[in-house]
């Protein structure tokens, strides 16, 4: 009987160990840090290459599109535009379709990585919300359970 328990125990340890190891390794690649801009601009080199979800506001008037393409460049800042100080500012680049709610001053969450020339947003990595949308989302019904 004890022999059997040892066998079961050993199997369990190996299985759990393997799962935990796999989980650890995939988590290391799979996780994204959710950060405000001020939290990263102070120590940018440390964040280079890490997957981030960057939270900020579009700086008014900085949003440009290369003609006949879906390449965009814009700046995002830490604080909402109505505040007097902007906080940290980051250059961002993106290729793809921007949501309609992406406008000047919009609150955005950008998924991507820091590269040498700024924050590079991955495809479909722009989530924008305007204040009313945010409120509506809170009330709205996603019926989803």
């Amino acid at each position: 009987m004890t022999h059997r328990y040892i066998k079961i125990g050993a199997t369990a340890v190996v299985l759990v160990g393997a799962l935990a190891g796999l989980m650890w390794s995939t988590l290391r690649e799979g996780t994204e840090y959710f950060k405000n801009i001020d939290e990263v601009v102070t120590n940018r080199p440390a964040w280079e290459g890490k997957r981030l979800q960057l939270h900020g506001y579009v700086v008014p008037g900085t949003w440009v599109q290369r003609p006949n393409s879906l390449d965009y460049k814009f700046k995002v800042q830490n604080n909402p535009a109505r505040q007097t100080t902007s906080g940290g500012v980051v250059d961002a680049s993106y290729t793809g379709i921007l949501p309609d709610t992406f406008k000047d001053e919009a609150e955005v969450v950008l998924k991507g990585k820091f590269g040498p020339e700024g924050f590079h947003v991955e495809p479909n990595g722009v989530m924008a919300k305007c204040p009313s949308k945010y409120e509506a989302a809170a009330k709205s019904a996603s019926a989803g359970s």
Binding site: T26, E29, G30, T31, E32, Y33, F34, Q53, K111
Partner: peptide, 14 residues
């Protein structure tokens, strides 16, 4: 104390 998220690729991998 840090908000870390996992997204689609992580789920798919498993």
């Amino acid at each position: 104390g840090e908000r870390l998220t996992v997204a689609g690729p992580f789920f798919n991998k498993w």
